[in-house]
Write a protein that binds this DNA or RNA. Structure first.
Lengths: 347, 347
DNA sequence: TTGAAAGCGCTAACAC
DNA sequence: GTGTTAGCGCTTTCAA
């Protein structure tokens, strides 16, 4: 029933839309003249132009960019695939990419991979089929060879936040390793010997890098990481809550925690707020209102907007013809001390 | 120099891309057979299909959706114009719209109006030129008659968060009036007689509605609002800081504040944290970590994801042919008490 | 200054 | 089962 009524519905939705041909007929000029007026090309008498403009107004004509794209080759649009449009970390990145695209007269098509490699690929290929001029991708997967034909065909591609897997491509990253190392070292410098690390899934590049930074800082200080001090997995609050509890309720509990990203930090803060014994905390990524908590949350901040802007600018350089070798740009992080990372060890 | 080199660069970026014709030639079949295989249409022998698939693989063929769109009329994409992609309030809305679009096989093109009516119109019309099947708009302007020809031509349009201006269109809103009235009444119920209101610019529909709710609650309680208790303007922190200071440093200061949205709340919380005398606060919109502050921030929460999902579902109903009169859906808000709104008046 | 014709890559309609 | 033709609405080319 629903099915058949759906079939019977008239398909053509633009059949009613006026085309340049209609405008030409109404204005009594040739098709090409309308094209000239619409595109602001020279070589049209003011009088002719006026007549064409009137016809455009009267008919409510709007150029069909699909046809234009087909003919011209360029779509003046770029695709952005991120992990989650709802994540506050990616909001500023998204906006920064949009601003650069806008400055270049391009529209932004975007979507979430939901940390699923298949969904990432599906989305990326759909964008390629739409013939976006370029792509900015926060990769979920680790094998981007599926993009090779696309890149060869001229789709400029820049990876952001995480590097591409198994292909050589531009990437703009934050210094996850260095940031985590500095953050952990900060805790050690405040007297902590028993420091836990709660991170995202280890398949995620940034998560692995941050873990590496933590390990490096511990090694730098000559500290041996004991079993149970490291917990990796999803950022699901239940998972993180259990991880924190396990570390704090162990016979010889940690006195400080390094949280691998903003999602983890938020849950850790919640758990610690409900505990009597103070536990030091440094989190990767800044969090809104972190300064107003008691204690304030010390963080290793990265600049998502700069990440996005840099990636987008690189993309448009490529679209403007830059043909140098793919490069990896690594942006520095910044340690912001607010109290939680400066708490002394409680025994 | 740069200009001329830009001109000389070879324009055709897809000329190198294989087309169905190329695939057909390579597979030794007709064009239409390739089309059938690519679109999974029936009526192709397994053997022929295999040969076509091989040619597709070998050539790295990917269907050009621009051409498909031109022929079919539908683009399988929708446009979303919001105020600011970076605003944490709109992240979940954005994501919810994306999920619905995805479920319907459509891509999402989106952009920020930056609260600028001209930019909104520019973006909307660009999306129309791309022939998006439908539009979801958080309006910045108050006159959407420019959309009339588009809507007439079949572009389904749903407004979200704020209603359209001067045209009759679907809208999905939160109950700003009711929420603000309830939030203000909550303060009054806790003994406050001198309640201030700090809101966004009054041209923004939600800001005006919330102010109206505040006024209604005060009137309900028989309270007269004194000059200086209402401050409207941008959500710029400096502006809000000054507004709070003015209310608190007046000879007869307010004992409670109603904050018109999340941006305002954050700044008010910061200011109050630096003051000795406790001031009650209820904010419109929930804020992450609001529960962990001391006192926790009492808020009138709205559900941005439901707002987005509802709007997107309405849009696809329209695209599926729903032709009933435009309707306005108003979603309820929810008062979440956490402490700041329950503080008694300090004299 | 203006316009007619060709064609971008695909799908719809209708052959065979 | 398969192929041929026309044409979506625009830009490009070239002639007038």
């Amino acid at each position: 029933m629903a099915e058949s009524s759906r079939r019977l519905r008239p398909e053509p939705r633009y059949g009613t839309r006026p085309t340049m041909k209609d405008v030409a007929a109404r204005a009594g000029v040739g098709l090409k003249t309308v094209s000239r007026v619409v595109n602001g090309e020279p070589g049209v008498t003011p009088d002719t132009e006026r007549r064409v403009q009137e016809a455009i107004e009267a008919l409510g004509f709007r150029r069909n960019d699909s046809a234009r794209v087909l003919r011209k080759g360029r779509t003046a649009s770029i695709g952005l695939v991120i992990e989650d449009l709802a994540d506050p970390f990616y909001g500023p990145l998204n906006r920064a990419v949009e601003e650069v695209a806008r400055a270049h007269g391009a529209l932004l098509i975007n979507g979430s991979s939901a940390e699923d490699p298949e969904r990432e690929q599906e989305l990326v290929l759909a964008l390629c089929a739409r013939r976006v001029d370029g792509l900015i991708v926060v990769p979920a997967g680790h094998d981007h060879r599926y993009l090779e034909p696309e890149i060869k065909a001229g789709v400029a591609t820049v990876f952001v936040d995480r590097p591409a897997g198994r292909i050589d491509a531009d990437a703009v990253l934050s210094d996850s390793f260095g940031g985590a190392r500095a953050g952990t070292a900060h805790l050690v410098a405040h007297g902590h010997r028993r420091v836990g690390f709660i991170g995202d899934q280890s398949v995620i590049h940034t998560a692995a890098e941050r873990l590496r930074g933590y390990r490096a800082a511990m090694a730098d200080a000559g500290l041996v990481i004991e079993p149970g001090w490291i917990s990796l997995g999803t950022t699901d609050p239940d998972r993180v809550r259990e991880a924190v509890a396990a570390m704090l309720d162990a016979p010889d509990p940690v006195t400080a925690i390094f949280a691998g990203n903003n999602r983890v930090s938020v849950t850790v803060v919640r758990v610690l707020a409900g505990r009597a014994r103070p536990v030091a905390l440094v989190g990767f990524d800044d969090i809104e209102l972190a300064d107003l908590l008691d204690p304030g949350v010390t963080v290793v901040a990265q600049d998502a907007a700069t990440l996005g802007r840099t990636a987008a600018e690189r993309l448009f350089q490529r679209l403007d013809g830059a043909a140098d070798a793919p490069e990896r740009v690594v942006l520095p992080t910044r340690l912001i001390t607010r109290g939680s990372g400066e708490l002394p060890p409680a025994h």
